[in-house]
């Protein structure tokens, strides 16, 4: 569905952030993108929706080359790509509802969005999503009044109201505590599964990534050095991605009781968080 071909990005300063990266994401496939800081992870996903302009290469979403698109087509393509950010990137002084509805900006005209008169189906969907992420009691709270985990849930709802085909997720858990990190990862994975959404998730936390996804891509200095299942991510591989270090314990083998089960089954069991159940019962 998403085909990235020999994508190269050189910053005006001369730094080569991405060096001929090729990667394809199938429909419904969730990829964790790992690698040291500065490896080009953020640049890669920002190139996909052209928040950063790539220097060379092509990015095809359903066969259409995003890199070659003009302004109008690009706007249309961005609608199909939901993005979730590390620092949430909510508009702090807008309410939760306004933030969620802002995901619809690509679909409504200026005056409708200016007067906050969104089409009823969009409003219904916003309420439904806020319920799904467990925030339906905070609709009119201002975004800056929320906790980190709550903000990220708003960020997720904003990305999903676009009804995207793929999610671009930039360090979703880096600003969150360990428990909230897991809840947020679980929520993202669950939602992807529910909707058959593909996703590229940049993540620093290797054990967390291995817990939740079936495919991991390792990036080092703008080059893909690993692409495979979590199981194949041996100490040697980690050294190749991050450099020399003592990796014992990093892969989180003793982390869960059901260490022998495949990752996605672990997720299925782990997804069972009470607040989601409650929502599902309604």
């Amino acid at each position: 569905m998403l085909e990235i071909d020999s994508l190269t990005m050189r910053y005006p300063t001369g730094d080569l952030a991405l060096d001929s990266v090729s990667l394809s994401v199938e429909r419904g496939q969730v990829i964790a993108l790992i690698g040291p800081s500065g490896a080009g992870k953020s640049t890669l996903i920002r190139c996909v929706n052209r928040l950063v302009e790539p220097t060379f290469g092509s990015i095809r979403l359903n066969g259409q080359d995003i890199v070659a698109m003009g302004r109008t087509d690009l706007r249309r393509a961005r609608r199909k790509m939901g993005m979730i950010f590390q620092e949430y990137a909510l508009v702090e002084r807008l309410s939760v509802m306004e933030n969620v509805l802002s995901g619809q900006l690509g679909n409504v005209g200026f005056w409708r969005s200016y007067l906050r008169r969104y089409p009823q189906p969009a409003v219904d969907e916003a309420f439904r999503l806020l319920g799904r992420v467990g925030l339906d009691h905070m609709v009119d709270k201002r975004a800056d009044a929320l906790s980190g985990g709550q903000r990220q849930r708003v960020g997720i709802a904003r990305a999903l109201i676009q009804n995207p085909e793929i999610l671009l997720v930039d360090e979703p858990t880096a600003s969150l505590d360990p428990k909230t990190s897991r809840q947020i990862m679980r929520l993202i994975i669950e939602l992807c599964r529910e909707r058959g959404l593909g996703a590229i998730i940049n993540i620093h936390d290797v054990p967390l990534a291995m817990m939740f996804v079936e495919r991991i891509v390792g990036l080092r200095a703008g080059v893909i050095v690993y692409d495979g299942p979590p199981k194949g991510l041996t100490d040697d591989r980690l050294t190749e991605i991050y450099g020399e270090e003592d990796w014992s314990g990093t892969r989180g083998d003793g982390d869960e009781d059901e260490g022998d089960k495949p990752a996605h089954q672990k997720v299925a069991a782990a997804v069972d968080i009470p607040e989601l159940k409650k929502v599902a019962q309604r």
Partner: peptide
């Protein structure tokens, strides 16, 4: 904060919408 502008741009918002949603509130 550029992050907020980036987030609004990523939704496919037009330039006036970016002004209204990401710049104006700040």
């Amino acid at each position: 904060d550029r992050g907020q502008v980036e987030a609004i741009r990523a939704t496919g918002a037009s330039w006036p919408q970016q002004m209204n949603y990401a710049i104006q509130p700040q």
